[in-house]
Nucleic acid binder design. Structure first.
Length: 470
RNA sequence: UCCCCAGUAGCUCAGUUGGCAGAGCAGGUGGCUGUUAACCACCGCGUCCGUGGUUCGAGUCCGCGCUGGGGAGCCA
């Protein structure tokens, strides 16, 4: 499309991804990226240039005699270059296309201290150089997939007429049972000597306690009761001292909230979302996913295929308890009605008993938060969790308690001050309707799709207890 | 926060019942080749995580600490 002159003049770069998709031989192109490896022959060198647009690198042939290729043999892994030349079919095995270099421009040579080598590194090592790991095949692929999945989240909801709501990051709702909060304050350390605890809050920026959000749910509910179907998709913060491979202090959560929606439709939507995200990745990230199929988890193709093609198992909490009691498997924690399902219970259901995602619903009211709708049996609430093999809980949701008197009773039961939630309770005073929603842990979703087993490896720069570098 | 495991070269790891510290890869030099985790030859590479102790002698055994990993809890 661009004339050679135009490409030269503007130095416009061609992305390797689009060259590989639409290339025509003979075309003069310009790529800009980072040297992955150099292999020398007697009279010329092979370069592999990666620009991050896709997993594949572009092979470059640099003739040592060509005036524009001076100093090719100085190029090291990690160096940044621009290469202009003719695109042609590669006579070698392993790649369809290559560029016969006419001009190689060096942005910077990477010295030999560059930590990434032409070999496999451990995930633990790469976490310590998280600023460089997106330059590896695996992490480049993971973060391209993460990007595609976020796009797919928006497309899923937009196609169904949901409205995207930006709920606040800083909130004043003190507690809601979703974990420890990160406090937000504008006071300086010295100021705390001037005030006692209560007056410190009054003299702080907002005049009361503030914290980073642990969930946009309550605010999303208010918008659902105005706009119908809404969702949030943003960062979420938990100050829990959790040290596991599936918890982070800062993570992204997708939280749809649907008016005129009961628990079974809520579960339908959750199942459809998970299926849509997996399908989207299979259709749009084939090359990147193949890396994970081959090098990360060989059983991944089967797992993803099962998720897309088979209905999720659905089982009530009471049924799940009976089933676990009857199983011959010995569990680390005992199972009894009234106690929450533990990690090994959930894994047994998803991985061994059903072999597919499981939705467990109608949990005992005593172990669930105040906003979940009390069922007619008075003992359970209309809650649901989606449990997937390998990860455990990926979604938690419920039908919300829309009856004012019951909601107030539940708040009293769980020790909450109703006056703090006057705005939330107003939604049950003025045109309250049945409604439902859930929260999807976005990183856990990326883990599911890629087979990556540690949440720190699907976050660009993970925040976990004691770790805030980068 | 609790339980378990690990920490040795730039990276991945071996190191026997306690006896002078090893390999592969990466890096350097030379050679060869339309190569592709290139190949062949040669070369260098150490606070054995820190600290205290046991011992004639500690990478190895013991205490404490730090860092990393796995599991549990909390949850998404």
């Amino acid at each position: 499309m661009n004339s050679p002159e135009f490409a030269e003049m503007t130095s416009k770069r061609n992305k390797i991804r689009s060259l590989l998709q639409t290339a025509e031989p003979g075309q003069r192109v310009c790529i800009k990226g980072w040297v992955r490896t150099r292999r020398d022959s007697k009279t010329f060198s092979f370069l592999e240039i990666n620009d991050g647009s896709c997993l594949a690198s572009m092979q470059v042939i640099a003739d040592h005699a060509a005036p524009g290729c001076d100093g090719v043999t100085e190029l090291t892994t990690g160096s940044a270059v621009a290469v202009t030349g003719a695109l042609r079919h590669s006579p070698g095995k392993g790649q369809k296309w290559e560029i016969l270099a006419e001009q190689i421009t060096v942005y910077q040579i990477a010295p030999e201290t560059y930590p990434l080598q032409k070999k496999r590194h451990s995930d633990e090592f790469l976490r310590r150089i998280a600023h460089l790991r997106p330059r590896t095949n695996k992490y480049g692929a993971a973060f391209r997939i993460r990007s595609e999945l976020s796009f797919a989240v928006h497309r899923f909801f937009r196609d169904q007429g949901f409205i995207y709501v930006h709920t606040p990051i800083i909130t004043g709702s003190d507690c809601e049972g979703a974990g420890e909060l990160f406090r937000v304050t504008a006071l300086r350390p010295g100021d705390f000597r001037k005030f006692d605890d209560a007056s410190a809050d009054q003299n702080d920026f907002f005049g009361k306690k503030a914290a980073l959000t642990v969930s946009g749910q309550l605010e999303a509910e208010l918008f659902a009761l105005a706009l119908g179907d809404v969702y949030t998709f943003g960062p979420t913060f938990r100050a829990e001292n959790s040290n596991t491979r599936r918890h982070a202090a800062e993570f992204w959560m997708v939280e749809p909230e649907m008016a005129f929606c009961e628990l079974s439709e809520n579960m339908d939507n959750a199942e459809a979302l998970v299926k849509h995200l997996v399908s989207h990745a299979l259709e749009n990230c084939a090359e990147d996913l193949d890396l994970f199929f081959r090098f990360v988890d060989k059983s991944l193709p089967g797992i993803l295929e099962t998720i897309v093609s088979r209905p999720f198992a659905r089982i009530s909490y009471a049924e799940a308890v009976d089933l676990l009691k009857q199983s011959e498997k010995r569990f680390e924690h005992e199972i009894a009605f009234g106690y929450d399902l533990q990690a090994d219970h959930e894994r047994f259901l998803a991985e061994q008993y059903f072999g597919c995602p499981v939705m467990v619903y109608d949990y005992p009211r005593r172990i669930k938060p105040f906003y979940m709708r009390v069922n007619d049996d008075e003992q359970t609430v209309a809650a649901m969790d989606v449990i997937v093999p390998g990860i455990g809980e990926i979604i938690g949701g419920s039908q919300r308690e829309e009856r004012l008197d019951m909601l107030e009773a539940r708040m009293a039961e769980t020790g909450l001050d109703t006056s703090e939630y006057w705005w939330y309770l107003d939604s049950r005073r003025y045109g309250s309707v049945p409604h439902s929603g859930y929260g999807l842990g976005f990183e856990r979703m990326v883990m599911l799709v890629t087979g990556i087993t540690n949440i720190r490896d699907v976050l660009p720069f993970a925040r976990t207890p004691g770790n805030i570098d980068f």
